[in-house]
């Protein structure tokens, strides 16, 4: 899937009415650069309790088929810190973006 429409696309190549036929193509738009602080995943402390998975507004906590989370997807994480705040085990620490 790729969206080949941008601000240089001539009218004849744009979809009519602003329709988009590639549902979910927003994944091509990265929001990670909005971040000023970032969550650091400390896997040793993580108990896989699951509290952080659903609270991420940006779906930036990947969860595998085994129901276990892995490290953050920084392509999308906006650094809001909601995940760090819900973690009872201090397995997520907010640090400054380098």
């Amino acid at each position: 899937m790729s969206t080949n429409i941008d601000k240089n696309t001539p009218a004849k190549d744009m979809t009519i009415g602003g329709n988009i036929y590639e549902a979910g193509n927003a994944v091509e738009f990265k929001t990670g650069d909005w971040r000023s602080i970032k969550p650091k995943y400390i896997s040793e402390k993580c108990t896989q309790c699951g509290l952080c998975f659903p609270v991420c507004p940006d779906d930036a906590i990947p969860v595998g088929k085994d129901g276990k989370r892995t490290d953050f997807n920084y392509d999308y994480c906006k650094g809001c810190g909601v995940c760090a705040k819900v973690c009872p085990f201090k397995a997520i620490e907010m640090v400054n973006e380098e």
Binding site: G24, A26, V27, T31, D59, A60, V63, K65, K78
Partner: peptide, 25 residues
Amino acid sequence: KEVIANKPSRFTSGHRMCAGCGAPP
């Protein structure tokens, strides 16, 4: 865990809601 693992998100990343917005979750 089963819900998250077996039912993929139907509302993707890459949206422009504010950081920490309560609506996307």
